[in-house]
């Protein structure tokens, strides 16, 4: 990574941090647990790095480390979104509750 690459990357980091601050401070405490699992799933995007490491076949060690990384990141992507959806289904307004009073999740 050269300085020419590093500085734009730093811009992206700074802007993402600022945007993150603006967006995430507006999430109510009601949804803080789903927020945590959702950001967990989203940061499973490190999968894209793992995929390249696992598939590039530079050397055996790299491939195996990449394979484990793909597995771990996939656990987070699949598991993170899955459990977030499961949680969000619980949150119902009073009206929804009256429509289907005894619906089991």
């Amino acid at each position: 990574m050269s300085p020419e690459e590093f500085i734009p990357a730093l811009y992206i980091f700074a802007l993402a941090a600022f945007l993150g601050y603006l967006v995430l401070t507006r999430v109510p405490p009601l949804l803080h647990t789903p927020l945590m699992s959702a950001t967990n799933a989203i940061s499973g995007i490190s999968l894209v790095g793992s995929i390249v490491a696992a598939g590039a076949q530079h050397n055996t060690v790299g491939t195996w480390l990449g394979f484990i990384a793909v597995t771990c990141a996939t656990i987070n992507v699949v598991g993170g979104f899955w459990i977030t959806e499961r949680m969000l289904k619980f949150f119902k307004s009073k009206e929804e509750m009256k429509q289907k009073p005894e619906e089991k999740n």
């Binding site: 690459e5 967990n40 940061s43 995007i45 490190s46």
Partner: peptide, 27 residues
Amino acid sequence: AAATGFAISNNVLIIAGTLDGFSGFIL
């Protein structure tokens, strides 16, 4: 994850990692 983005010059990783990092920090 954001540092991974820096290491392999991948912008989506920097963005997603930073959002995750900031969410944890705010919490």
